[in-house]
C-alpha cells in the first residue's frame, strides 16, 4: 500500500512493535498500515461515524471519544507514541491537548497546516481575505480550523513549555520535503510535522 508522504514519514519515525494512540484517526489507514508493517499495537480516537465504521471494517481498534473532552480516562505514559495528524488546528485548546498527549505518551507526533506558508501569506496580503486553499478549503465562517498556527508559533510554544523537538519536517505543495522548505520552513513549508517529547 502506498502511503501519503506525511504518513510515510510518521511510519519512519515509529519503531517496530510500539504502542500507539492516534487522536482523530480518520478511517484508520495509518493505524492499519502501522499494524501490518510494524506490528504496532494501537487505538484510534474518532467521533465521525463514517470513520468509526471504516476503522471497524479494517479491524483497527477505534474508540468513540471527543479529544476536546480530554484524555483523562487514559493513564500516564500508557503509550509510546501519541499521534495527531492535521487536527491540532481544529481542537478547542491545542495547548491542553499537546500537554495531555505528552502525559499519556512518551512522545507526541503532530502535523498541522503551516499558516506561515508563502501562499497563505500571499493570499492574505494580496487579496486581503482569509486564505482558502487545497489544504485549508473552508470559508472563514464555516471552518473547523479554529486555531491555525505557524511553524514559528509552534516552535515558540514548545520552547515555552519545555517540550523538546526531536524532529521537525515540513512538506511543500507537492507533499515533498524540498531543500528550500528545510532551510526556511516557516515560509516554504505547507505542512509541518513534529516529533516532540518532554
Amino acid at each position: 500500500m502506498m502511503l501519503r508522504q506525511d504518513l510515510a514519514i510518521i511510519r519512519d519515525w515509529i519503531p517496530q512493535g510500539a504502542q500507539v494512540l492516534d487522536l482523530g484517526c480518520g478511517d484508520g489507514t495509518l493505524l492499519a498500515h502501522l499494524r501490518d508493517n510494524l506490528g504496532v499495537r494501537g487505538y484510534g480516537l474518532e467521533i465521525d461515524q463514517d470513520n468509526i465504521a471504516a476503522c471497524i471494517e479494517k479491524g483497527v481498534n477505534v474508540i468513540e471519544q471527543d479529544i476536546d473532552e480530554g484524555l483523562g480516562n487514559i493513564a500516564d505514559q500508557r503509550f509510546d507514541y501519541v499521534l495527531m495528524t492535521q487536527a491540532l488546528q481544529a481542537v478547542q485548546r491545542p495547548d491542553q491537548v499537546l500537554s495531555e498527549m505528552l502525559r499519556v505518551g512518551r512522545e507526541a507526533i503532530v502535523t498541522f497546516p503551516n499558516f506561515g506558508y508563502w501562499r497563505v501569506r500571499g493570499y492574505l496580503f494580496f487579496k486581503g481575505r482569509m486564505p482558502v486553499s487545497r489544504r485549508l478549503p473552508y470559508e472563514w465562517y464555516d471552518t473547523p480550523n479554529i486555531h491555525l498556527c505557524t511553524v514559528r508559533d509552534f516552535d515558540t510554544h514548545c520552547q515555552k513549555n519545555g517540550f523538546r523537538v526531536l524532529e521537525r519536517r515540513v512538506l511543500n505543495h507537492d507533499h515533498r520535503s524540498a531543500l528550500f522548505s528545510q532551510l526556511w520552513p516557516n515560509f516554504f513549508g505547507e505542512l509541518a510535522m513534529y516529533r516532540v517529547t518532554r
Partner: peptide, 19 residues
C-alpha cells in the same frame, strides 16, 4: 460502557467502542 473500554485499553486488549 466506558468503564469497560477504559479497563480494556489499560490492559492492552483489542477493543472498539461506539456511542
Amino acid at each position: 460502557s466506558e468503564e469497560i473500554v477504559n479497563a480494556l485499553v489499560a490492559v492492552d486488549r483489542d477493543v472498539s467502542y461506539a456511542e
